[in-house]
Amino acid sequence: MTGEDLATPLDTPDAAGLIAIALKTFRETVLPAVPAEQRFAALMIANALSIAERELTVREDPALADALRRLTGAEGDVPNLSRRLCTAITEGAFDGRLGSADELRDTLWALTWARLAVSNPKHLNSVPPRG
């Protein structure tokens, strides 16, 4: 965060900071007191807050955009390059390589890991690390 950011001046808790402390308070003081019938909803709330917190603090890995540039031969940011890659895949440009683990498959993995790191990092641990 920079001092130029008018919405959250220096030393003022920002959105990510507010969510982080709200989540900690919810988990430590509210969740233990939630009756069984509301526990499922309470756990969903904690889950939603933790996704939002990670989404606000995530940093994009520059290697991902590089890999998408190599695959598409184009310039742009990750969403733009992703769109180009979708078009190429759908038009059949990669049909000959659909059944092999090559740079395309590796890049799809990298995209998925990056998204999982936000939505559900625990799922990354459900398999041994990929070599």
């Binding site: 890659l85 979708c86 759908t90 799809l108």
Partner: peptide, 18 residues
């Protein structure tokens, strides 16, 4: 979303080709 998410685009194409 199939035009924005390459994993989805790839999976759908895989199903069509295979």
């Amino acid at each position: 979303l199939a035009d924005e998410d390459p994993v989805l685009a790839y999976g759908l194409r895989w199903l069509e080709v295979k």
